[in-house]
């Protein structure tokens, strides 16, 4: 890295560059939406798996655990084939190279994290909590909610981990988001494309923004969690 690249990086990092602000906000929106969607379907799935006894439970848990490490390039490529406008089974939705496609892809990517971590958090709750809620008059659903409330901290951590995985991934963003200037460009794809164009300074600036964003959001969420814990 030359001195000039470093200076450019520092300048871009501290300047209020409209493009960088736009990329950062889009990244936060895409990853945040993906984490929210994954939580919306992942937490109920985890609740059912953790609280019900059925044949094949161990097998399903193993599958979700294994999928945590799925390579983003492989998932991105599969989604590219699925969303492909000419031959993909979901091509009619015309989602390829849109932020929506990236949101869907990242939600699928992080669902195993949410499900596996939430299962662990729910299973760690004292098994008598559900019975306690019931003996105090709770219905089955209210008792399940009481268990979920006890597991909230673990589920919260699952959400943070999922968001981190989503905002930092490149494979899916590249394959289904592409690099459409002003439309699908994200922090990770921005770093990659600037590197291809030999704009080392801009790449470094985007990387610093990505790391700072992840750190700041994690710090803020953990501070809120800590403050709530003290109440």
């Amino acid at each position: 890295m030359s001195i000039s690249s470093g200076l450019i990086a520092i300048f871009l990092f501290f300047s209020i560059d409209p493009r960088i602000i736009e990329i950062t906000l889009r990244s936060l929106f895409v990853s945040g939406s993906a984490a929210l969607i994954a939580a919306l379907w992942g937490v109920p799935i985890a609740t059912i798996i953790a609280m019900k006894n059925f044949h094949g439970k161990f097998f399903i848990k193993t599958i979700f655990n294994s999928l945590i490490g799925i390579p983003t390039v492989a998932l991105g490529f599969l989604l590219f084939l699925a969303f492909s406008r000419e031959s993909g089974p979901l091509g009619f939705l015309r989602l390829l190279y849109t932020p929506t496609a990236v949101i869907i892809g990242e939600a699928i990517l992080i669902t195993p994290i949410i499900v596996s971590w939430a299962i662990s958090a729910i299973e760690a709750v004292d098994p008598e909590i559900a019975n306690l809620a019931k003996t105090l008059g709770a219905s089955e659903s209210q008792a399940s909610f009481a268990v979920l409330k006890e597991a909230l901290e673990g589920i919260f951590l699952a959400g943070i981990a999922s968001f981190n995985r989503a905002i930092g991934e490149l494979g899916i963003a590249q394959f289904v988001g592409g690099f459409i200037y002003g439309q699908t460009e994200l922090l990770t794809t921005g770093i990659w494309i600037e590197l291809q164009l030999n704009n080392i300074g801009a790449s470094i600036a985007l990387m610093m923004i990505l790391l700072t964003t992840v750190f700041t959001i994690n710090l803020a969420l953990n501070t809120i969690k800590r403050m709530r814990g003290r109440e």
Binding site: E128, I129, N131, S139, A146
Partner: peptide, 18 residues
């Protein structure tokens, strides 16, 4: 569920909500 409203059990191992 209606019958549960008439009685309650205090467990041997104390269980408390967070």
């Amino acid at each position: 569920e209606r019958m549960r409203m008439q009685s309650t059990l205090v467990f041997q191992k104390t269980v408390l909500f967070n």
